Computed example of a mutant assay.
Amino acid sequence: MCDQYVNERKHKTYTEKEYKTILSSKNNMNVYRGCTHGCIYCDSRSEIYGMTYTFENIEVKTNAVKLLDEALSKKSKKCMIATGAMTDPYIPLEKELEQTRRCLEVIEKYGFGIAILTKSDLILRDIDILKRIHKKAKCVVQMTLTTYDEELCKILEPNVCSTKRRFEVLMEMHKAGIPTVVWMTPILPFINDNEENISGILDYCKQAKVTGLLTFGIGMTLRHGNREYFFKKLDEHFPELKKEYMKKYSLSYELRSPNHQKLTRIIKNFCKGNNIIYGVKEVFEFCAHFPEQNDQISIFNI
């Protein structure tokens, strides 16, 4: 299956840096900074996060595995470790460095759980470890799906595997007995905020028997850093839309789709009808819950 992994060396260089800590107060971690996926909407580009260099030039936290080992060895209570919120743990550089894989080995060694968010099929490389973690504790694989149309997906998320391929990853995880969550976010006003797109993604969710689904409202966010990049990409691919965005949203942080209510209602009804956990609070609670002994729900141990 290795020959199916996305292997696009879009990054030109990377820097190495040692850190003092790897886990946040809420047990989140990122083993890299920056990203080469090239998604035109990425909030992680925002200057508020302190990116002082080109976003595509990856910063590798060289002592991440050691720091994680030290941190988990000292924890008196097991919990879920989360990764992928700021930087995808399976950027192409991971294929060479295996930082994420080695962190997963540490998590398995100490009996902790993992909730991992990605857009990459490289995660299939580590399905052996993920299955072992889930057998001992709990593993949740979260996959971002925003765009059903494959040609449009190549524009919005140019350097990652297709939405269809990500659906196939979800199917593989379900076969392995690992619960999955879909992040259907962001949905871009005037671009993919339509019923056809949402219905296509929901059909993937149904086929893959996902456990949970979340949106942060139908729309997106823009602030200094990612706004400039997004508008640059609009000029390249959707030149007529930049004027529409400025007219409707000006410099607003939250850009809610005009179709927000209708599409949200469709998603809610779908989740209710298919027994899928829906909502940010509900999904986060599911991902953060570490099962006590004999607390694993049988449905997830297929």
Score class of each variant (00 low, 15 high):
L117W: 03
Y110M: 02
G113K: 05
L130Y: 06
R227I: 06
N192H: 05
E96K: 14
Y204M: 15
H224K: 15
P189H: 10
N192G: 02
R102A: 10
K206D: 01
K136G: 00
T118I: 03
Q207C: 11
P189G: 08
T87Y: 10
N159W: 07
A115Y: 03
P89A: 10
E96F: 10
R125L: 08
F216A: 15
E172M: 04
R165S: 00
G212K: 15
Y229G: 09
G225C: 06
L117D: 09
E195Y: 08
R102L: 10
H134P: 01
I91W: 04
G219Y: 13
E228I: 08
F230M: 02
L202T: 12
V210A: 14
V181A: 13
E108H: 15
R223A: 13
I133C: 05
D88T: 13
T87H: 10
E195G: 01
P158Y: 09
N226T: 04
H134G: 10
V169K: 00
G225A: 06
S199R: 07
E94G: 09
F112G: 04
D128I: 04
V182D: 06
T215G: 13
I116K: 00
I178C: 09
V182T: 09
G177L: 00
E151Q: 12
V141A: 07
I116G: 02
L122I: 11
N159K: 08
K135F: 05
T144C: 09
T144M: 08
G212I: 15
E94D: 15
T146H: 00
L222M: 15
V181R: 09
K164S: 00
S199Y: 01
R165H: 00
V182M: 02
P158L: 02
S120D: 07
I201M: 01
N192I: 00
L222S: 11
T221P: 03
H134E: 06
V210C: 08
F230I: 11
A115P: 03
R223G: 09
E96D: 14
M143T: 12
K206G: 05
E96H: 12
L122R: 10
